[in-house]
Write a protein that binds this DNA or RNA. Structure first.
Lengths: 204, 204
DNA sequence: CCCTAAAAATGACCGCGGTCATTTTATATA
DNA sequence: TATATAAAATGACCGCGGTCATTTTTAGGG
């Protein structure tokens, strides 16, 4: 017969996540071992793998939180900005900064950003979906209401535009994680150029 | 005093690479251990790391060869094609197929495609550069001589066009490596749409 | 040809992520 | 409350990538 999950489960899971959160604060993921997380959370190592599929699966929760922070900030921050393009650049760079700062974070993002929701931790896919929705509605708004410095092209639907933007952001993060793009300014410049070329409608 | 490297060096390095080539034929990289490569090549494991920085560094040579094969095939194959766009799609999908078939291959490609040539094995960066050159000259030719099904846009230089194409191909490979893009046909369709939108000049 | 110093090869060893047979704990029922 | 059993926790263990003090081989000067 089936019994329902005990409340211990949620507690230990929370303890593990809290330990992971603390230990990864400011340190690269690959310097934080599963043994260390087990020790910090006062739980046997084996238990980590009972609650999470693997190290990536565990840390994807941490990445999810960081991703969510970007979304939240985008949604709440009403700071006036020079233009729609600048706003998009600003938000994109927040993501690039997050992803390119830690190889393992980028790794997790790439592994899970493409996967079907079934094999990914819900927090991560939720955050990712929220981010994609935010981008989608941003572009929708831009197209409908207009915005500086140019009008969006109309020969592609918003979803297609968004997927292109994502592609540029992702590759920018990859290039920056290696050292192909050295300075942050170069990264911004590249994205600005690509965004213009991808999003701009025919000249008025 | 400095002595020059012995000829043994090249021999063992070649033996190791040959073993790696054999063992990875048709099998995912992560099923082939360094111990296995050492055993197959008749060399101590420690020697592998004397000749190559790490497993990625070793296998990047194998990836380089596969990459080079794509370049070579593109350069020699004079098969008549329906259009420039089809040719580009065809060649891009060859790369996508290569990268998405094995996680570790994709990993190596992403790690090294961005890195400065100094920290990457020469064969790999050579193959990558050859591929980029091939794309560049393909696009240059398209722009100058024209070609179906449309003329290339002229508001971006060829290098910028190429970087965009690479971005779309890379993300397509990532999506396909996970299961975001299930069928190969969907992948082709996505790329076709993105290539058109990215490359097409203003309607005549 | 021998001797010596540098170059190359070696394999025991380490920490890591991950597994699993076993033990401990909680809960439903009598 | 006592008992049976499912759920949860445990930690010794494994194979992996990678290291390094030691040994073996090679090349060049006397």
């Amino acid at each position: 017969m089936n019994r329902k999950t005990q409340k211990r489960t949620h507690e230990t899971k929370a303890r593990i996540l809290e330990a992971a959160r603390q230990l990864t604060e400011g340190k690269p993921f690959d310097t934080v071992s599963m043994d260390a997380i087990a020790r910090q959370s006062g739980v046997a190592k084996g238990s980590l793998f009972a609650h999470f599929t693997d190290k990536s699966g565990l840390l994807s929760h941490v990445v999810a939180e960081r991703l969510q922070a970007i979304v939240d900030h985008w949604e709440t921050d009403g700071t006036a900005r020079g233009s729609k393009l600048e706003e998009l650049l600003d938000r994109s760079m927040a993501l690039v900064d997050l992803l390119s700062a830690d190889r393992a974070v980028l790794q997790i993002y790439l592994d899970y950003s493409g996967a079907t929701s079934s094999n990914v931790s819900e927090p991560f896919s939720a955050s990712l979906e929220a981010l994609e929705n935010r981008l989608f509605s941003f572009l929708s708004h831009w197209r409908e209401k207009g915005g500086a410095p140019f009008a969006l092209r109309t020969d592609l639907d918003v979803a297609a535009l968004a997927s292109g933007v994502s592609a540029f952001v992702t590759t920018a993060a990859i290039y920056r994680a290696c050292d192909r793009i050295v300075s942050r300014a170069d990264c911004v410049a590249l994205l600005q150029c690509q965004f213009r070329a991808w999003l701009q409608g025919p000249a008025a």
